[in-house]
Write a protein that binds this DNA or RNA. Structure first.
Lengths: 235, 235
DNA sequence: ATGTGATTTGTACTATCGTACAAAAGATCA
DNA sequence: TGATCTTTTGTACGATAGTACAAATCACAT
């Protein structure tokens, strides 16, 4: 049976959502271990016991955050990837593919407020902390998508070995993560000329740089053809 | 007065060093907050109280790890950068500069065993966790070096705006960090064809990709000259 | 050998952690 | 209204955290 959604969803403060939002925010900034259940409850204006009631454990809370975002974000990526694959021009297609990977990570990957940037930052931090809950759910949720992107890129760059493409897409994710983790560093190093927190700039810069990286000549593992500049490594 | 170093340094178990090494290892893998002083002491075969004796606090221990590595690593980077700057050919010089930035992060940045990769991974994790102690010492230790590298790259790529170079070197560091944090992901996504843990591969791949990224055409902030492929963002 | 300073050990203290659980409060419908 | 289910609150418990500190031990010059 379907009750009128307005009177139910709108009126209630919906503590569950508030807790999720607060946890997401705090985890994304400080990491999983540095944030206590009490911190989260306080930030959400809830009682510590309420967190246990809704999510049973702290791990369960993190798990629910992932469940909330992974689906929509993956879906959006798939849609954008499918559209990108239909681009005729090979150069344009590559850029469209990269964009399809990057954009959902910055903009809202779901209908939740604040957008996907926070969740992507959360993923970056969890990955750095080696969080087990995150590791498991990520591997089983994003690896398919990652393979799809790698395949698509490989299709538009047939002369580049798959191995190289894997490395370069790995670098892309690392750059993406780091841009969300310490945007202030960009502002600082550019002496205020660039705003590291500006998502639009980050996306454009990242796409431009990454497309060029993908197009770099392949590494010939057998015989290094090009003379390599030698730098003294004496101490 | 100088006592014979063999009888003094070699014979003693040197708990202080063991604690430092254990802490570095554990922090780099699990993050700062997830590792307890007792964990460190146990891994080093020491008593928890001994950690307090040598480093006063847990923060002090982390600080000492940074102090131990930052100097040598910065020095080595400066040397390599100076050598790279003397490379005549502009293309080769750019590659040498990037290499001067990347290599010390992977190989031993100091004379300590295990090499700088562990310390670089530690930095990556601390950065993700937003660790205050690390943030402070990093900003005051590495920003000068970072600026020097940015300037050097700018010199060899005069037609690229400094802002773009800052972004791209930021991406470089992010890719570098991520390669050290989750090397297994490379192995997994390449279906075993690449070994993400192999430092030599990582360095070559990273250098090659990054050089290409730096050489990408600049982003014209005023008027986007090139037609940009549009991808439907309908849901 | 012995005294002295450096180091290691063992233990204890307080704070805070995740979580459990009973009671209170609120919502829903006959 | 009263019964029933859901949600929130308050409190408590055991575990573990960082750190302090006195006692024990070690290294070594005299």
């Amino acid at each position: 049976m379907i009750r009128k959604p307005t009177s139910k969803e709108a009126r209630k403060p919906n503590m569950r959502e508030a807790i999720l939002a607060a946890a997401e925010e705090l985890f994304a900034i400080n990491g999983f271990n540095a944030v206590s259940v009490r911190d989260i409850a306080h930030a959400a204006g809830a009682n510590p016991g309420s967190v246990t009631y809704h999510f049973k454990t702290k791990d369960g809370l993190l798990l629910e955050i992932y469940r909330r975002h992974c689906g929509p974000m993956n879906l959006r990526r798939s849609e954008l990837l499918a559209a990108a694959r239909r681009v005729r021009d090979l150069q344009d297609r590559l850029e469209a593919i990269v964009r399809a990977y990057v954009v959902p990570a910055f903009t809202s990957g779901s209908d939740l407020a604040g957008g996907g940037a926070r969740f992507t930052r959360l993923r970056a931090v969890m990955s750095a902390e080696g969080n087990e809950v995150a590791r498991k759910i990520i591997a089983q949720t994003f690896d398919d998508t990652s393979h799809a992107f790698i395949d698509a890129i490989h299709d538009s760059l047939p002369h580049i070995p798959r191995t190289d493409i894997v490395w370069r897409s790995h670098f892309l994710l690392g750059a993406l993560y780091y841009s969300l983790v310490t945007p202030d560093r960009v502002s600082r190093l550019s002496r205020g000329e660039a705003d590291g927190g500006d998502a639009a700039s980050a996306i454009e810069q990242l796409v431009q740089a990454t497309v060029a990286a993908f197009q770099a000549p392949p590494l010939d593992h057998a015989a290094p053809a090009r003379r390599r500049p030698v730098v003294s490594s004496k101490t």
